[in-house]
């Protein structure tokens, strides 16, 4: 089921088009990665989803109907540049932000208590925000983002500013929220985390969407027939310099030869394997799937060359 959809969204700023006919569709209870180089238009799109700014063209749908201004209570937003009122007490502030999202004071208090206990941050309740370390402030901010149990969560670079332990904690929280039914839009430059938690991605570049799809499909789409085999046959390298293969690299690992090559023809993996089996002893055979990082760089570079 689809929770959110944007169609052909256009946004212009004085002489500069920030978004050019961008459409995305976010499935319910999934993690949607919004990727792209700096200045591609991610933040603009996120602000449009949050109704901070209005699109010049295009339409937005939430749960199958048009997005309404009251829907902001179903959305939780953690912006990339985070901040809280420095002079305000932690508890009071969390309560205030929860009420601004439309929660009653009573419900907000109950949920806050739960989250503060979960993160073991109850002792901070009466502290001023400026007394907390940056990491502690991030935790408080995370709580204020999810406190109203939003259906749609938008995280912009959620792990920046966290140490690896807390970053991992946050990652697990995000996956738990998804397991409980939340839908998440996740914007980041950190491709490793994209592979870990995203189900679907859209890649924005120069105000346009240039790639969209399920993360496994995309990786499949960008594999280039590169394989890695291991063989005890030390003479095997010569085989990959011809026969339509192109040898990428090889090295001797003890008594085993490790060879990385690109297949030439449109043969399937099984055909390739059969062909190789007749010629040499195979200890390991693996297709090299590109990482999201490689896909990202390749796609953006291709787009740049086109221009």
């Amino acid at each position: 089921m689809e929770l959110f959809r944007a169609t052909e969204v256009v946004k212009d700023y004085a002489g500069h088009r920030a978004l050019n006919k961008v459409s995305i569709s976010v499935a319910e209870q999934s993690v949607f990665g919004l990727l792209g180089p700096n200045g591609a238009g991610k933040t603009t799109l996120i602000r449009i989803i949050n109704q901070i700014t209005a699109p010049d063209e295009g339409e937005l749908f939430f749960q199958g109907r048009k997005l309404k201004s009251t829907d902001i209570q179903y959305i939780g937003y953690l912006p990339e540049e985070r901040g809280l009122y420095k002079k305000m007490k932690v508890g009071e502030q969390a309560l205030y932000l929860a009420q601004l999202k439309g929660m009653s004071r009573h419900d907000a208090l109950r949920n806050l208590k739960k989250w503060f206990e979960k993160f073991e941050i109850q002792p901070w309740w009466n502290k001023k925000v400026e007394e907390l370390s940056k990491g502690m402030q991030q935790k408080v901010q995370f709580v204020t983002t999810v406190i109203h149990e939003p259906k749609l969560l938008i995280f912009d670079e959620p792990f920046s500013g966290f140490d690896p332990i807390n970053a991992n904690l946050m990652k697990n929280e995000i996956l738990q929220l998804k397991a409980k039914g939340a839908t998440i839009i996740f914007s980041t430059h950190n491709m490793a985390s994209v592979e870990e938690i995203c189900d679907h991605i859209a890649l924005l570049h120069q105000s346009q969407k240039i790639l969209d799809g399920n993360i496994f499909d995309i990786k499949d789409r960008y594999k280039r027939g590169i394989f890695e085999i291991e063989t005890p046959d030390t003479e095997a390298v010569s085989l990959f310099s011809q026969n339509g293969f192109s040898l990428i690299e090889h090295d001797l690992h003890g008594n085993r030869q490790r060879i990385k090559f690109q297949k030439a023809t449109d043969q399937s993996n099984n055909e390739l394997l059969q062909k190789l089996m007749g010629k040499l002893e195979i200890s390991a055979f693996r297709e090299v799937i590109p990482s999201m990082n490689e896909v990202f760089i390749q796609v953006v570079q291709q787009a740049n060359q086109k221009n």
């Binding site: 901070i52 959305i75 937003y77 901040g83 809280l84 932000l97 601004l100």
Partner: peptide
């Protein structure tokens, strides 16, 4: 204060 502390973006996503 709201602008420099960056809280404004959170707030105007609520109001």
């Amino acid at each position: 204060e709201e602008k420099t502390s960056r809280i404004v973006e959170v707030i105007i996503s609520s109001v």
